[in-house]
Design a protein around this nucleic acid. Structure first.
Lengths: 214, 214
DNA sequence: GTCTGTGAAAACATTCACAGCG
DNA sequence: CGCTGTGAATGTTTTCACAGAC
């Protein structure tokens, strides 16, 4: 352990943790890298190698303790604490994100909402009031915002990113259909279903018209 | 050209196409790999190498014609036609997806909605009627569904995937928080903001508490 | 016997660096 | 000149294969 850890490895850990949670719920106590790999469609060697960057979690001849490994991975990822998020942009998309229950249940709490539309400022979504972007610095200080969620139109995306970075936010979840630019200490994850589809069509196009006649 | 094309390259093409579209809208007619790379935060060599898998699109001493390169990339990706999608699951998430205007504007048309809740079947969202999953085979044949969007809870995800695959759908956009399993001819793209956040926190945790005091 | 952890090998992806075109 | 297209070099990731633990 204690080498430099490849980013691809870190990106796979949440997938492992999620699968372990599902196994745990089904009452599975122990699992081998072979079986976990089958479940996730990856090779057992990859799972073992990935985990080996962080320590020795398995038992030879047996496999991994499901509950323990899940807890360890979550700790490694920093999921043993709450993360505080602000959503910028409460249009259709921002509102859908604000009321999505999947964040809170995983420890990602939305603690502030921002928009630049005067008609929206002051309105309430869930139990949060929509605030003006002018209040960003103040609210960021009061609420300790870890992560900013960018849910504004493309043409306002970079401006919003710059403001979030300026008040000390170091993690961004970007829903705007643009490539945003940030200083090196800021981490970005893009969520863009259209881009995902646009690379998939390359393969749909090239895997011949399957045309399974009725 | 005409080698085997790495998947990472295909995944970057939509990003290039999107940036080219934005440049085009701003009236930029020609761009070099250096400038496009700066814009996207990638090396110019990567852009040139990626494009070289598909042909020679640039002009030495000048760069790339923005409108032409965009059109070529979109053709390569199969974005010069319409793609027909069905959404399975019209809960909160499925409805948000159904009324998201970003798909249609990029040529991804939602042509059918399914759910297994009798209270939802027969209701209308936009101009589409929600149908029972029992009608899937019939509707898939009538409507020529290319892509299935999985927007059901985790515990129903795999079942829905199997049904979609059974009626000949070869592309899936998966919003369920599970790793789905499909035969090799089926392409999957996962959309999961929680998983995206869960790998980001690793870096937020490890890049020290920046703590920029007010 | 079963399964982990891990160096070494193989496969894959990115970057370099430059010949050659406009 | 400036910039592309591309083999060769470098760096990264995955897979192999096996010693050793249970």
């Amino acid at each position: 352990m204690s080498e430099r850890i490849p980013e691809v490895v870190v990106r796979r850990l949440p997938i492992y943790a999620r699968a372990l949670g599902q196994l745990e719920a089904r009452g599975v106590a122990v699992i081998s890298s072979l079986d976990l790999g089958r479940l996730l469609g990856v090779t057992p060697a990859q799972i073992r190698k990935d985990l080996s960057y962080f320590g020795e979690f398995g038992k030879q001849g047996t496999g991994y303790d499901v509950a323990h490994l899940k807890r360890e991975i979550r700790r490694i990822l920093g999921l043993d604490r709450e993360w505080r998020m602000a959503i910028v942009g409460v249009g259709r998309l921002g509102r859908a994100i604000a009321s999505y229950p999947g964040f809170a249940s995983e420890g990602f709490r939305v603690v502030a909402l921002f928009d630049n539309d005067p008609a929206k400022i002051g309105t309430t979504i869930g139990d949060l009031v929509v605030r003006s972007m002018d209040e960003l610095a103040k609210v960021a200080a009061d609420e300790r915002i870890d992560i900013g969620i960018v849910a504004v139109p493309a043409d306002q995306g970079q401006e919003v990113v710059d403001k979030l970075v300026a008040v000390g936010v170091t993690g961004l979840l970007n829903y705007a259909p643009i490539t945003i630019s940030v200083p090196p200490h800021v981490r970005v994850r893009d969520v863009d279903p259209v881009v995902a589809l646009q690379s998939m069509t390359y393969y749909l196009k090239h895997s011949g018209p399957d045309d399974p006649a009725s």
